[in-house]
Design a protein around this nucleic acid. Structure first.
Lengths: 154, 154
DNA sequence: TTCGGAAATCTCGACTTTCGAGAGAATAGG
DNA sequence: CCTATTCTCTCGAAAGTCGAGATTTCCGAA
């Protein structure tokens, strides 16, 4: 595989992110939300999937927002009925964020469909092929992550 | 490969986009730009790579912004010295956007390094492995794109 | 040629989102 | 009990975005 074809793979990765971004934007438009709001809801959903309850502060780090913006963000989402603020009983300074049932349902509806289609498309691949893909994606993600944090002189 | 492992692949795709997004955000912070500004510059750079000159209108579609916002966006970028407005000689309504040399250099510096590292990581793979990866990524991108445009009842 | 419609961009005013600084409330440690 | 720390929220200012409409330019038809 020559250099041009390898370069094409890099562009393919970028295209993937652009399209996935567009999906999020579509979801945002459908529900009258901003781009940041969707990122926040995805972060909350991800945390919930891992069994963790996201606090306002952690959410701020996740979406890279100042504390003031996080307050405004959560205000917005709460007003729209998408999340609830839940005071932590142990540390009463903390505020945990929970998605409302309607938000969970909307998210499952939208992203669940995408997820299902992606899994269906994977049915065409043999196990060893998917293993290669996983190794590739994991490695690329690691390289990208290194650049996202600090510029390595390589 | 069982269902959980396939699901993990989907999450891996998402992680990739999150990290790539973080890279863009880092570039934005480094140069005092907003998220939208970076998306715009990437769009202009991509068009330039294809040999096309991006007009203000097309840019607006690419980053999904109203014409008023595009004007403000280009104003910002021009004031910062990152792009130039160039009136089209044939159709004098149009305004083509060109990246300044400094912006090109900054972009090449930052994203060029990432690109190089990604290509280097690909060196570990055999040709037929990369072929599988390309087929996979192309197919996933297509599925995602379908969801980004309109919700298919599948 | 001239005119009206369409196209591309820009201007204007209002609203939303974000940030920086700092205040308030709760916890942890001495 | 007192202080330092942590977490969230409030406030005013700055930035970004949008909808509506103005301006300039192009194109096709009479």
């Amino acid at each position: 595989m020559d250099a041009d074809e390898r370069q094409e793979l890099v562009l393919l990765l970028r295209r993937l992110t652009v399209e996935l971004d567009a999906v999020g934007q579509r979801f945002a438009g459908l529900h009258g939300l901003g781009r940041t709001d969707v990122r926040a809801m995805v972060a909350i959903m991800d945390a919930a999937r891992r069994g963790e309850a996201l606090t306002a502060g952690v959410l701020g780090q996740a979406v890279d927002l100042s504390s003031a913006s996080v307050t405004a963000l959560v205000d917005r989402l709460e007003r729209a009925g998408h999340v609830r603020r839940v005071r932590d009983a142990d540390d009463r300074r903390r505020v945990a964020l929970e998605l409302s049932e309607s938000a969970m349902a909307a998210g499952a509806d939208f992203f669940g469909g995408l997820n299902r289609d992606l899994l269906a498309a994977m049915a065409d691949y043999a196990d060893d092929e998917l293993t290669v893909v996983r190794r590739f994606l994991t490695q690329m993600a690691a390289v990208i992550e290194r650049h996202a944090r600090a510029d390595p002189p390589s």
